[in-house]
Simulated assay, not measured.
Amino acid sequence: MKVKRIHHIAIICSDYEKSKHFYVDILGFTPQLEVYREERKSYKLDLKVNDVYQIELFSFPNPKERPSYPEATGLRHIAFEVEDIKETVDYLTKYSIEVEEIRTDPYTNKQFTFFADPDGLPIEIYEL
């Protein structure tokens, strides 16, 4: 078996419209396909990141909370590459998104920081 790459990341949100606004209007991901699954009372929105299908945004009635802080076992965060971290941080703060202090990776000398989606999912931005 040989894995080629990550196909997609699935995210379950508590407020579909709020999360859709965050991922589409603020982060700029492109909707590819949006469906409402009546039998599950659930939306599924496929999103492209830089023209590559990568995110599935789901809504479900009464989803369980994800433990994040302190760090819990499981998926720790998702990370996205950006060209200019300072410009990205300035952009996010214009939308009142709280962004942690920019840090430098001691092994790569690249800058990175974290913020959260509307449900508290940690998102890292990492400068190219």
Rank of each mutant, 00 (worst) to 15 (best):
E65G: 15
V35I: 10
I55Y: 12
L33T: 13
I55N: 04
F112L: 05
N62L: 13
H21K: 07
N62V: 14
K64D: 15
K110L: 06
D84Q: 04
F58Y: 15
D51Q: 13
D46V: 08
T113L: 05
S42L: 00
P106T: 08
P61R: 15
Y53C: 03
Y36T: 09
L27D: 05
L75M: 12
D105G: 00
Q111V: 03
N109G: 10
A72S: 14
F115W: 09
K48G: 08
F58S: 04
V82N: 01
P70I: 10
R40P: 00
P67G: 12
P70C: 07
S59F: 12
P63C: 12
I97V: 06
D51E: 14
Y16N: 08
T73R: 09
T104A: 01
Y53W: 14
S59C: 11
G28R: 08
R76C: 07
F60D: 06
H77K: 02
E81V: 06
T104I: 10
D90N: 13
Y69E: 13
E39I: 04
T73G: 01
Q32T: 14
Y53D: 03
S96H: 11
E34W: 06
L33W: 11
R103H: 02
K41W: 03
V89Q: 07
K94E: 05
I26Q: 04
I97N: 02
P106S: 09
P70D: 07
F60W: 14
Y23T: 11
R103C: 01
P106F: 00
H77Q: 07
D84M: 01
T93S: 06
G28W: 07
V99E: 01
Y95N: 06
E39V: 02
K18I: 14
L47K: 11
L47E: 05
E65N: 15
Y95F: 14
L47W: 13
E101G: 00
Y95L: 08
S68T: 15
Y36F: 15
T88N: 03
T73V: 14
D90V: 08
L27M: 14
I97F: 10
E98P: 01
V24I: 14
Y107C: 00
L47Q: 05
V89D: 04
S42Y: 03
Y16H: 10
D25K: 13
Y23A: 12
L47Y: 08
I85T: 00
F22L: 07
Y53I: 00
E71K: 13
S19W: 10
T30H: 11
D84L: 01
V49P: 07
K94I: 01
I102H: 03
V35L: 06
I26G: 08
R40E: 06
D105Y: 04
I26W: 04
K110P: 02
Y91H: 11
N109A: 04
G28V: 14
K41V: 02
A79Q: 03
K18N: 07
V49N: 07
E81G: 00
E34I: 13
Y53N: 02
F80M: 07
S68I: 15
S42P: 03
H77F: 12
E39M: 05
F22M: 10
E101N: 04
V82K: 02
L57V: 13
I97Q: 02
K64C: 13
P70R: 12
Q111E: 12
F112S: 06
E38G: 00
E83G: 09
I97A: 02
R103T: 05
